Amino acid sequence: MKYATEFRDPKAARALLARIAQVADAIGATREKPVHIMEICGGHTHAIFRFGLDKLVHEGVEFIHGPGCPVCVLPMSRVDECVEIAERPEVIFTTFGDAMRVPGTRKSLMQAKAEGADIRMVYSPLDALELARRNPGREVVFFGLGFETTTPSTALSIQQAARENLPNFSVFCNHITVPEPIRALLDDPHMVLDGFIGPGHVSMVIGTHPYDFIAQDYGKPIVVAGFEPLDLLQSVLMVLDQIHQRRAEVENQYARVVPEHGNPVSLAAIADVYERRPSFEWRGLGEIDASGLRIRAKYAAFDAEEKFGVGYAAGPRHVPEPEGCACGAVMTGRIRPTACPQFGQGCTPDMPLGALMVSSEGACAAYWQYGGARGREAAE
């Protein structure tokens, strides 16, 4: 099984772990606290727990779980606006499945569907386009959600809708970008971060240069990583080597997939369809300048915000977290999921209170799924 078994070899893993321990010991001789490495991507968080890397690495290395995934950082107000659109009788609302159970202040999309709203799970915005073709008398809205990984497919779908002149297709755009929240985290005086594991899938689209500011402006190393155990262990070692050698660079461990300058076709589609919002709200991080994308004026006919007068078109609105929910603190690495008073009590996969327990890449879901009884007992 090429590119899977090669990156799960136990002998190679033991060699990397030994080297990590050696470098961590050398770093530890000059400092008391462990090296704090933040993995930005929720896929990395789940891989770390799935393969037990958090228990295998040297005690001088501590993983800090970052923003994770777009579902995790989606503010409740945007879920409320999705429900508001979906409950219109003329609308067929389409979305990826992982957004269905994220709670809003009144209900989730799953609950709205159970109450009669025409909400359909799709695998691609192209599925939503096909629904628009087949249902010319209905408004088909696609929930455009994701980091740079999913942004190109939505952009290409909008371009296709424009070519076909499909007036009943629109996108509720909630696409967001990764570099800006990293800068916000680095500017937070309460964050103690020594280096980063960079997101592999996002970097396939944008390349490695958007992270240059992390090394140049903040003096922190970042290594773009793959998702197999040896990918992550090698990336940890690369971060540690940079720290030990007192250098800060952007390095690409995932070079077999991630090109230095990204995917030019995807980047061209993004540039054509989207422009930066002045700011966008992130759950747990608040409003972050230029961190969100909106649909350009030339494609306004396909912009659900403009069509239905919701979202930032109607003015931003902030909704506070549910009482006792610590998603924001978990997402920014301030506390572990088990430190949230609701973990395993008021918030479980069956009855989630926050997005981090819902999302397939959420940190709370990872602790619950791979932490076993110990993870749940820690909350009791």
Rank of each mutant, 00 (worst) to 15 (best):
P10W: 11
K11T: 12
K11H: 12
R14S: 11
R14L: 13
L17S: 09
L17C: 08
A21M: 11
A24P: 14
A24I: 15
A24V: 14
G28Q: 09
T30E: 12
V35T: 14
I37A: 03
M38N: 06
M38A: 08
E39S: 05
G42L: 03
F51V: 00
G52P: 03
L53M: 10
D54C: 03
E59H: 11
G60T: 07
C72P: 03
C72K: 05
L74W: 02
P75V: 07
S77V: 14
R78F: 13
R78N: 11
V79I: 15
E81T: 12
C82W: 06
E84V: 06
I85D: 03
E87Y: 04
R88W: 02
R88S: 06
P89C: 12
V91I: 15
I92V: 15
T94A: 11
T95Y: 09
T105D: 07
R106W: 08
K107D: 11
S108N: 14
S108P: 15
L109M: 10
L109W: 00
M110C: 12
Q111G: 15
K113W: 09
A114P: 01
A114H: 07
E115F: 08
M121S: 02
S124C: 02
P125W: 02
L126G: 01
L126P: 00
A128N: 01
E130F: 03
E130I: 04
L131V: 05
A132Q: 03
A132G: 02
R133I: 08
R134W: 01
N135G: 00
P136T: 03
P136D: 03
